[in-house]
Design a protein around this nucleic acid. Structure first.
Lengths: 190, 190
DNA sequence: GTCTATACGAAGATAGAC
DNA sequence: GTCTATCTTCGTATAGAC
């Protein structure tokens, strides 16, 4: 059921996650909804969001040991697969919540936590690769923002190109940042 | 009324644009809704989207003659202002539609057209500044994607920092692209 | 645990008076 | 053009049987 809720969330946004839609997709029995989710629809959306955030976070973590390039590659591949498998009908569930109605403070807090969780391994990887703390953090933010933005553009254009373009530009940016840092360090070290 | 619809769209997403909400905010009379918008809610959302897209497109166009740096600066300032004025309650109306329910093919097509309209002056500016066609297009896509993604992050974190960080990294990326192109051209030209 | 039935509210849309 | 009233649909949530 949570799995189905995530799918609907990706495709139709927060408002689209109705109990009916989730029930239809999952084939779960109607009578058991409020047994498993006493909090009703609200709880269902919250659990779907956190489940999706954790799942993607785990994928990022798994690539963390291999360096920033690998993390980003996995992250981009992940979205390309989601876009392709859904024929550009599905986007990022966390973005879906973050652009939804603002009233739900708890949900909103979760999105911030999830984005932070995703960017943390990136930030650390950039630092391990020699970048200064400020640059590493900015680059991590830039990575998440540009990929998430690209996913929106891909859905809008029904094309994988925006995400391909962004991935390429991100690579260039990271390379040039490393190059500049090495240059500065070399001068500083002498 | 359209103006109010844009506001609601930015704050609550597509699903949040109910006739009631727009009426309340605008103070317009209930009886005249279907007089001015025979297409009902659907038409209202469509006109709000296109109005917002044109308004922002016009701002971008106005800065086009001054070069890519100025376009981007205006674009970023625009979002910072929207975020600040709304206390991080408002995001991008076009993104709101693009992550909404997929059924509405016409609305979806409009988002693609609007994103294309916004990136076109950027692409041209990059080309005028010496970048190759491919690079210029990729950079334009990267600019739109990263800024839009940053706006989402800003709302989520209730902070202007993500957008500031992204703006800074974009500058660096563009500078390094220009530098590389000059290097390649110099070698090619000799 | 899961079922059916139903209360309740919100929202879109139409009809007919003014 | 704008008003009020009304119909219909849809979605949440609860009640009570099995």
């Amino acid at each position: 059921m949570i799995h189905s809720a995530v799918e609907v969330l990706r495709e139709r946004g927060v408002a689209g996650v109705t109990i009916d839609a989730v029930l239809t997709r999952s084939g779960a029995p109607r009578g058991s909804v409020y047994h498993h989710f006493p909090g009703g629809r609200t709880q269902l959306v919250a659990e779907a969001l956190n489940f999706a955030g954790d799942a993607i976070g785990a994928i990022v973590d798994r690539a963390a040991a291999d360096g920033s390039t690998e993390i980003l590659q996995r992250f981009v591949e992940l979205w390309q697969k989601i876009l392709r498998d859904s024929d550009f009908a599905a986007g990022c569930p966390v973005v879906a919540v973050a652009v939804g109605p603002t009233g739900d403070e708890e949900l909103f807090g979760s999105t911030a936590a999830i984005f932070a969780r995703w960017s943390e391994p990136l930030r650390r990887a950039f630092e391990n690769e020699g970048l200064h703390a400020d640059d590493a953090e900015q680059l991590a933010t830039m990575s998440i923002a540009s990929v998430e933005g690209a996913v929106v553009l891909c859905r809008s254009q029904r094309s994988r190109k925006p995400l391909d373009d962004v991935a390429r530009q991100l690579e260039l940016l990271i390379e040039s940042q490393k190059f500049l840092t090495r240059g500065r360090s070399a001068r500083t070290d002498k």
